[in-house]
């Protein structure tokens, strides 16, 4: 039951206009750069995109913004992108800002079949407005609802034909959460290995979360802030 596909173009064609799309990555680290590029070329419209950040002007999710493919963005931090600012200020783009831990947990809950959860995060702030409040264990909490995606785009380091994935270093970030919360998950990997080569003890995303698996080539892996030791 191989999930290996050869065309990013055909895989992203499964994503409909108006879909909710969960995308892995933190800043530009661990983003599914090949699938995003294919989606930008395809031009799928009216997307709701759930991702911690929204890329930069000319890379990552910024490419979808530039094409005006995103109607609504759900993110925790969007400070790196000028096009985002423009589209938000002139009303073209709807934005829902979610605290990072709440965003991660809402996606996790979506993949885990938990409709919602209570958290103290955001109590007393604009985030809590209009949300159900409840005191649990003496602590004021708010109700946050799970997020599921019609599709998810994730990037892993290695994968096998069944769709088992392992990630590398901090490029893991939101990827395993997105993989589980997408009804149709497209995973791209740097290296496709033989089934049996990945040690079952060290698989981060078990195969059943992945529907399509593609191998990307010549990853750019752009760095937002290169910092090195002072000589």
């Amino acid at each position: 039951m191989t999930k290996v596909q050869t065309s990013f173009e055909e895989s992203v064609a499964r994503i409909q206009d108006g879909a909710t799309l969960i995308v892995g990555g933190f800043g530009l680290c661990g983003i599914p750069e090949k699938a995003i590029q294919a989606l930008a070329e395809k031009g799928t419209k009216n997307l709701t995109v759930v991702s911690n950040n929204c890329g930069v002007n000319d890379w990552g999710l910024g490419l979808l913004l530039e094409n005006k493919q995103i109607n609504k963005m759900v993110a925790s931090y969007v400070g790196e992108n000028k096009i985002f600012e423009e589209q938000y200020l002139n009303g073209e783009l709807e934005v829902e800002l979610v605290p990072q831990g709440t965003l991660a947990e809402r996606i996790r809950a979506g993949g885990a079949g938990i409709p919602g959860f209570y958290t103290p995060t955001g109590v007393g702030t604009p985030i809590a407005e209009g949300k159900e409040h409840k005191v649990i264990g003496g602590r004021q909490c708010i109700l946050e609802e799970a997020i599921q995606g019609d599709a998810a785009l994730v990037k892993a380091w290695k994968g096998d034909a069944y769709g088992n994935l392992i990630y590398r270093k901090t490029a893991r970030n939101f990827n395993p959460l997105a993989a589980a919360a997408g009804k149709f998950t497209i995973a791209e990997v740097e290296e496709l290995v033989d089934v049996g080569e990945l040690d079952p003890d060290f698989i981060h995303t078990p195969s059943l979360y992945v529907q399509h698996l593609l191998v990307g080539t010549s990853y750019e892996k752009r760095i937002e802030r290169k910092t090195v030791q002072q000589a």
């Binding site: 991660a104 590398r168 970030n173 760095i223 937002e224 290169k226 910092t227």
Partner: peptide
């Protein structure tokens, strides 16, 4: 490029460190 901190700066990992997902 796969090893950054929350400020998106490139860093290293100290001995005994660990990686995990955002949740």
């Amino acid at each position: 490029a796969d090893l950054i901190n929350a400020g998106k700066e490139t860093v290293t990992v100290k001995q005994g460190g660990s990686f995990f997902d955002n949740a």
